[in-house]
Amino acid sequence: GGYVANSLAIMTDALHMLTDLSGIILTLLALWLSAKSPTKRFTFGFHRLEVLSAIISVLLVYILMAFLLYEAVQRTIRMDYEINGDIMLITAAVGVAVNLIMGFLLNQSGHLHSHSHSHPHSHVPQSNSPNAARSHGHSSLAVRAAFVHALGDLVQSIGVLVAAYIIRFKPEYKIADPICTYVFSILVVLTTIRILCDTGVIILEGVPRHLNVDRIKEDLMKIEDVYSIEDLNIWSLTAGKTTAIVHLQLVPGSSSKWEEVQLKARQLLLNTFGMYKCSVQLQSYKQETSKTCASCQSSSA
């Protein structure tokens, strides 16, 4: 329809929808693979495939955006093109309808995937804490990426429909065609920057924004017989699946309570803070003795 109407706005909408279709295929493939059991080589499983799928989907749109921006600038400068308003109007209306259906389906898919992630692999009863609720509320990055694309398509399609209506009845305002591409480019940046930030945090193994490391340390220190926290590492396998490793030092003479302390620490991390997996390492506190090195002794002499 865009080629027949000679409308860059329609071609932009169609190519973006084609990109979203490939993104959806990548999303479904990633969700299928991420549900597979861990292997000897990939002991954490394939959860990061969702993150990889989200990045590829966003990059495809950025490449498309750069190409269409170039074409829009050329049309704005030259103004040597004619547009068939009737075909543009019909095609734009069909595009709006398709994007409404696509957005609805992806939104439902995101809710279902979020619920499937809300059951941690633990036999410990669940807590109703706000931290756990926020963690379980995160939906898949891959589904979010595809849904944001569909939402951007819908907004763009509505804009194209308005532009088609203007061009159909006011052909002298054909500049509305490349203007749609400019607006689309801005919307792409605004709607995908959050996804890129989230994927960046996951790839760099940063702490999810809904967790406070200082608060976690404070609560761990409140457990009886915990003397200090030697080390605490928190990262995400993918959105909504946070993992933690903590190394605790216990007060001297508390070796008989190790299992009790470990259970309390696991319950705190899994239930209160909504961790997907956690590992708790314990050791008795040993005061470090300062030793003077030979070079220091010789220098002082």
Rank of each mutant, 00 (worst) to 15 (best):
V73Q: 00
T39I: 02
L68P: 07
S228Y: 11
R194P: 09
Q74I: 08
S22D: 08
A244V: 01
L29D: 07
L263C: 15
T292D: 01
L15W: 10
Y276E: 02
R134K: 14
T43K: 06
Q287C: 10
M11D: 11
P120T: 07
I56C: 13
P120C: 11
S118I: 08
H121K: 14
I101N: 00
S300E: 12
L211W: 08
Q262F: 08
A244L: 05
I223L: 15
V94L: 05
S157Q: 11
D13P: 03
D177L: 01
P38F: 06
I87L: 07
V160N: 03
G240Y: 00
T27R: 10
R75M: 05
T238E: 04
V61W: 09
I166F: 10
V261C: 13
L220G: 03
K217S: 11
A239P: 01
L237N: 00
T19C: 15
I179E: 00
V183H: 02
I166A: 00
V160I: 00
T12G: 00
K257H: 07
A30S: 09
V183W: 09
S118P: 12
A97T: 05
E71C: 10
E205Q: 14
L282N: 13
L220H: 00
L161G: 04
F184C: 14
R41G: 07
R194V: 09
A72L: 09
K241D: 00
L270W: 00
V51T: 10
Y276A: 06
K170L: 15
S122M: 06
G274Y: 04
F46Y: 04
L106D: 00
A93H: 13
P120N: 05
H247G: 08
S299C: 11
G240S: 02
F147G: 00
E82A: 08
V201N: 07
R48Q: 13
T91G: 02
L232T: 06
S299F: 13
V261Q: 03
T39M: 12
T192C: 11
V226Q: 04
I56Y: 08
V183P: 05
H47F: 13
G137M: 14
H113V: 15
E230I: 04
D20W: 02
T39W: 06
